[in-house]
Amino acid sequence: MLLQASNLTIGYGNHIVQHHLNLVAEVGDLICLTGLNGSGKSTLLRTLAGLQKSLGGHITFRGKDVGKLTNEERAKLFALVLTDNIAVENLTIHDLVAMGRLPYTGWSGNLSANDEKIVKESLAQVNLLHKSESLICEVSDGEKQRGVIAKALAQDTPLVLLDEPTAHLDLPNRIEIMLLLRRLSVHTRKTFILSTHELDLALQMADKIWLMGNDGVQVGVPEDLMLTGKFQETFGSTAFRFDETDGHCKINHLLGTLTVAVTGESPATLWLERALFRCGISVVPNADIVIEAHQGCFRLQNQEVHSIEEVLHHLLC
């Protein structure tokens, strides 16, 4: 057991955000922390990281009370990737990653040959060696985030805490970062705990999910949480549901009185049904209006059209 929180209370000052939290992180786990806004994801991460005090309970690291560690000792156990913007003039990616070696250097902060080697390896692990001399203001947001992750790797800690590492990134970069973390957790045997709103990605990548509701945390492998309906319970809403077959989030559209039947070949029928739902049209097997999808065409009421847009136009006008 790497990290254990028992009966933990988190919050600010007199304001308790969550209490009676019991959490465990094992070596090599990739844990996604997800949940509602204001449920305390960032507060929990900051408390685990030692950036703010817990309001009660214990956090132990390999059985040792984390609260009794000095800053220096803590920096060799926990590495952080935060949402704080790093906007430093004239800082190269290399120098950013080298910051991760600060806990190991002497008063001058000079890097040893071994430190340099670790910086290089960390850069290589996030595929950023070629950008090592670029300034952080010159690289893309995705590359900058990979740089910050490399800094955390260079810190050479058994545990890495990441607060919304994919926020503000585009889809390919979000997936790339998640894949990178997945790969790193397998290769480095480090434990990663990250908060995220990317449910789809979390479900596909995480070893464990810490699902934070307004009263407590549900813990488990993603599939168990999905199967037992914990996601629906936590995010509980009438506006959407989690599809039981693939775990994707589906919107509950308000349906009108118009009904149609759809026949033909998939995937045309699949996308047609989605479009119909979106427009509030129910799909039932034996409705008066029948739409047939066939070889790229749609046939309805003896007319042939070539796009879903035209189908909708016919039905709604």
Binding site: L51, I86, M99
Partner: peptide, 19 residues
Amino acid sequence: QKSLNGLLLGENYARGLGI
């Protein structure tokens, strides 16, 4: 100077680096 370098990243990151 080492602590000053850490502070470049902001106080939270600096604290995380043991400063």
